[in-house]
Amino acid sequence: MSIYGYHIPTNVLVALLIIFSVLVTCTIAFGILNKVKKSKLSTELLTRVISWWWIAGGVAVIVAAPKVFGTVIIAYISFVALREMFSIGIFRSSDRTAMFFAYFAIPVQFYLAYNNYYTQFLYFIPLYMFIGVPFILVLTGQTEKIGRSMSVIPTILIQTVYLLSHLVLFYNIEIEGYESGPGGLLIFLLMITAFNDVFQFTWGKLFGRHKILPKVSPNKTVEGFLGGVISSAGLGYFMYFLTPLEPWQSLVTGVILSIMGFIGDAIVSAIKRDLGIKDTGNIVPGHGGALDRLDSILITTPIFYHLLIAYLSF
């Protein structure tokens, strides 16, 4: 389909159609449930679905609109995630200058990603922010507990900016004979990751018996994890038409992304447990903070990018 000469691949439209029809179905179902038998659960489900509409709208722009819009949206999400980490973490008053400085890594990193300066993209945060932030901390002259701040602030930048900015790299991929383009790759990644969360949650709720990480996240079970992996493999196989991959490669990707999603989820859970909070924030009604939603995408994005490069170079 073309709008004013701007081309949206058919497969991407099909995928978006699937997402929005699932959403419409859920909204009607939960809406009726909330009307007929109003309870705390039904209201909660409805709030969640309404938030999903916002998320799906963002996804639609990221996969179907011109590159610059997607980049700006992803950069802003990254900013919200960074702000959230700064808000829940434990810092010293003398860290404020370094934290302010850290925010400026976002425009630089996304500029590098947008223009495909891949080498500079790779080392800007791991090298220069790991030098710049400690140096600014040193300038403030407060050495008490400075080691903690020197490690925590740049590491948060890796987690919320570096990992997430890999999403923009997909815009730069060009593959001969592959029609869906970056939109297809991105929607494949985002769908697998989001549905994997839902699969693991649902399988765990239905059949969960054995806890997998009892000390970190009591809600996660072996059954939920395995069910999630199998369902995501199936979804990966089914959605292969969005990617330049063979069906079996797509299935393996589903398995790997499912495991990575679990890891990302577990990492954020552990941080929350350490800080004694249930959610990382309240910016997404019904879901909690931005990081509660992004936890698995942070890890699956770079892994999918590297997988793709590996498949394509063979």
């Binding site: 829940i88 434990i90 010293r92 404020r96 008490e144 800080l275 249930k278 903070g289």
Partner: peptide
């Protein structure tokens, strides 16, 4: 409500 922010340590 549950608290979402930690206050700065006074250092």
């Amino acid at each position: 409500d549950e608290r979402y922010t930690n206050d700065f340590e006074n250092i």
